[in-house]
Write a protein that binds this DNA or RNA. Structure first.
Length: 428
RNA sequence: GGAGAGGUGGCCGAGUGGUCGAAGGCGCAGCACUGGAAAUGCUGUAUAGGGGCAACUCUAUCGAGGGUUCGAAUCCCUCCCUCUCCGCCA
């Protein structure tokens, strides 16, 4: 959520930031609302001060021996009642405006960081780094896509998953299931050794949690909902982890807090009909290990670099070639101020594919979720950062395509062997 | 699901209508004492919002919302949450 004070004092700055995102918003309305709300608050608090004074006076008079029913007291009572009435009226107005303002603010996205390159769409994103050598088909070699490999090896059952649930769900079988589990453990261990605290949070989350991280109110149609319970299936561990400290004040000395959380993630993928219909790329349910930092505002830029490096460490350990792309202002997610996407090389498909998205959200989520740190006498909003480390299904896809052999088997990278228990899948 | 108890400041805990944002204690910070420390003493120590260059000041907040009253932590209503016991259950 954006700062109300900034909205009152400098709406032009907000307009400029939203403009860079390509978001057109009726800020005039919003700005006006913020000013009116403040004015009403002023009026109200003056009246309340007057009312408090009268109340105190009545108390003193009675204590000093005045008759509780006497003229003097009676007059004050009438005044008090009058003020109370007016306060009530103003409060009602104020509540209405406040609700409107809140509603408008909650659907405004974060402002891009000054460091974020300006651009309109994906096409304007900036590649900042490449690692590894993408595997290309050798002469006469036909590289398969991961879903072909998986089907052939019998490690993913798509058809029966439709029976169990519906399309865009998969069931992993045998070595497929084992590989997924191995990847999760491997990633968590890796991050733990780099200073992250492992977290296994609830994956049903309440409305406040989704609002805190920015998924609600604007993107309700993206999440699965248990409508009898005010609970939703979490679309990413970012949601429960943000709320892990919702409403808290954290000692500056304890920052940064670094968490690595494995959760299944659930997304309705509304409006993606026909895209990535095969394989492990786009599912209603998928596994992800998420990295999350709560940090001091002064350190968040550096933290963003570090978090991204920590995600990249997994790709490098698995010897998966990737590129790092900085998203332009027009391609940023709702809560992000700045984002690096990591795209892994899919050898069979012959393309780079997003496998991680590492964002700094500045104080945007912290304001929504009221997460502050104590710095001496003051409490201030801290900064939150998140990034996939990594999306597990897509990692498996990349591994299958990268490790495929002429004999139809798949070679497993050395780092994963202790977890997977074998260096091969489907070795005859 | 059934029965009961309870929600007050960082924590413990007092407070049943009137200068109560809230006694007391613990914790924490500063100062004094000390060669240094402990112990002791003194002082300070919530959050949010508004106004002010600032000192400061006003308002709100005792789980949440509503009501009674000139005045509510305290009385009334509704809701939420936590804990204990029983039942069921991985």
């Amino acid at each position: 959520m954006l700062d109300q004070r900034l909205l009152r004092d400098n709406p032009a700055q907000i307009a400029e930031g939203l403009g860079r995102r390509g978001t057109a918003a009726n800020l005039d309305d919003c700005h006006q609302l913020a000013l009116e709300t403040r004015d009403l608050e002023q009026q109200r608090s003056e009246l309340q001060a007057e009312g408090n004074r009268i109340g105190r006076e009545v108390g003193e008079l009675i204590k000093a021996g005045a008759a509780p029913g006497g003229e003097e007291v009676k007059l004050l009572r009438q005044q008090g009642a009058q003020i109370k009435h007016r306060v009530g009226e103003i409060e009602e107005q104020e509540k209405g405006l406040e609700a409107q303002l809140q509603h408008q603010l909650l659907v405004l996205p974060n402002l891009p960081s000054p460091l974020c390159p300006t651009g309109r769409s994906e096409a304007d994103n900036v590649e900042v780094k490449r690692w590894g050598t993408p595997r290309l088909a050798a002469e006469g070699e036909q590289l398969e896509e991961h879903w072909q490999i998986a089907e052939r090896l019998g490690i993913v059952d798509t058809e029966r998953s439709v029976r169990i649930a519906q399309s865009r769900f998969v069931t992993l079988m045998g070595q497929g299931a084992r590989l997924e589990r191995a990847l999760i453990s491997f990633m968590l261990d890796c991050h733990a050794s780099r200073g992250y605290t492992e977290v296994l949070p609830p994956i049903l989350v309440n409305t406040d949690s989704l609002t805190g991280s920015g998924q609600l109110p604007k993107f309700a149609e993206e999440s699965f909902r248990c409508k009898d319970d005010d609970l939703w299936l979490t679309p990413t561990a970012e949601v429960p982890i943000t709320s892990l400290h919702r409403g808290e004040v954290i000692n500056a000395d304890d920052l940064p807090l670094k968490y690595a959380a494995y959760t299944p993630c659930f997304r309705r993928e509304a409006g993606s009909y026909g895209r990535d219909t095969r394989g492990l790329i786009r599912l209603h349910q998928f596994n992800k290990v998420e990295l999350y930092w709560f940090c001091h505002p002064e350190h968040s830029e550096q933290a963003h670099e570090q978090l991204t490096l920590d995600a990249e460490a997994i790709l490098e350990a698995l010897q998966l070639p990737y590129r790092r792309v900085e998203l332009c202002s027009g391609d940023l997610g709702f809560s992000a101020a700045r984002t690096y996407d990591l795209d892994v090389w899919l050898a069979g498909a012959g393309t780079y594919r997003e496998i991680s998205s590492c964002s700094t959200c500045g104080d945007f989520q912290a304001r929504r979720a009221s997460i502050r740190y104590r710095d001496g006498k003051h409490t201030r909003l801290l900064h939150t950062l998140n990034g996939s480390g990594l999306a597990v299904g897509r990692t498996m896809a990349a591994l299958l395509e990268a490790g495929q052999q002429a004999d139809g088997s798949v070679r497993i990278p050395a780092a994963l062997v202790p977890y997977f228990g074998s260096a091969w899948i489907g070795k005859p």
